[in-house]
């Protein structure tokens, strides 16, 4: 055993077209998420970074077909688990925050009720206790007036507030060991972006969460992550500590990515 919570080994696959033709999209993707660390998976749109993350939870699009690979989570291969066993992993062990939080919340239930539902599902207990936990979680992610906010519907939340609520659900209510964030700040105002990232960093530090941040925003990565995985066109082109990647990028694509983001002087 190593200190990796999740090890992805040689994950490859293709999209199957309607006529059965294969479009390979992932080529031997391998990376590890080290326990207690925040790992960024960066790359441009279409590089396959989200697809790999969805595969971790077994919710890749149905048209995607895996041709090889393993995903070792605590020593067992997630890709070999049956639906029932996966059900126990989702939420309880691995949870996920999506890009569009308002779409991920059910429009007909209050936000508090949704958090309470998940709490009851994961931990049992009474309705009242679950609601208390939900309000506490909302308070913890700095949502003002959590008692009142808990009774509101998702459409009454701003994008940033909804994302906070989702983060509360994924991290505080589910209490997973691995939290995957799929572009959590894309589409939010810049000031709110940094607030949300601060919150994520703070939560994962205090809770000892292993975090996987999928993003194309290198600025965010530089400030928050310890490990970086760079993906391009379905391949992992470079992995390493954030420091190493930002100061001594070895791969040509990483260098271009860095100079395009204007974070560092092209040295």
């Amino acid at each position: 055993m190593s200190d990796a919570l999740l090890e992805i080994e040689d994950y490859s696959g293709a999209f199957v077209g309607e006529t059965g033709e294969l479009t390979p999209v992932l080529h031997g993707v391998s990376y590890r998420l080290k326990t207690g660390m925040m790992t960024a998976v960066v790359g441009e749109s279409g590089s396959g970074k989200s697809l790999v993350a969805l595969s971790i939870l077994g919710i890749q699009p149905p048209a995607f077909e895996r041709s090889s690979g393993r995903m070792l989570f605590r020593g067992s291969d997630l890709l070999e688990l049956d639906e029932r066993a996966m059900q126990g992993i989702r939420g309880a062990e691995i949870s996920m925050v999506f890009q569009d939080a308002r779409a991920a919340l059910n429009p007909v239930f209050t936000v508090g009720r949704q958090l309470a539902d998940v709490w009851q599902l994961q931990h049992g207990g009474s309705r009242r206790a679950a609601m208390t936990q939900a309000i506490e979680a909302l308070r913890r992610v700095s949502i003002p007036e959590p008692e009142r906010r808990a009774l509101q519907y998702p459409h009454q939340f701003s994008g940033g507030m909804a994302q906070r609520a989702m983060i509360a659900m994924a991290s505080l209510i589910c209490e997973p060991s691995l939290l995957i964030l799929d572009e959590p700040t894309t589409g939010l105002d810049v000031t709110i972006q940094s607030d949300i990232m601060e919150l994520i960093v703070e939560l994962s530090r205090t809770r000892g969460l292993t975090t996987c941040l999928i993003t194309h925003d290198l600025g965010v990565v530089a400030e928050t992550c310890q490990e970086v995985v760079v993906m391009n066109a379905g391949r992992v082109v470079e992995t390493g500590s954030a420091e190493a990647i930002f100061t001594r990028p070895s791969d040509g694509y990483t260098q271009r990515l860095l100079s395009a983001s204007q974070l560092v002087e092209a040295a």
């Binding site: 939870l57 919710i59 059900q87 989702r90 996920m96 999506f98 919340l105 059910n106 429009p107």
Partner: peptide, 14 residues
């Protein structure tokens, strides 16, 4: 296939 259905499945709902 809406995202909140996905989110519900992801939090461990049967």
């Amino acid at each position: 296939d809406w995202q909140y259905a996905e989110a519900a499945r992801l939090t461990g709902n049967l």
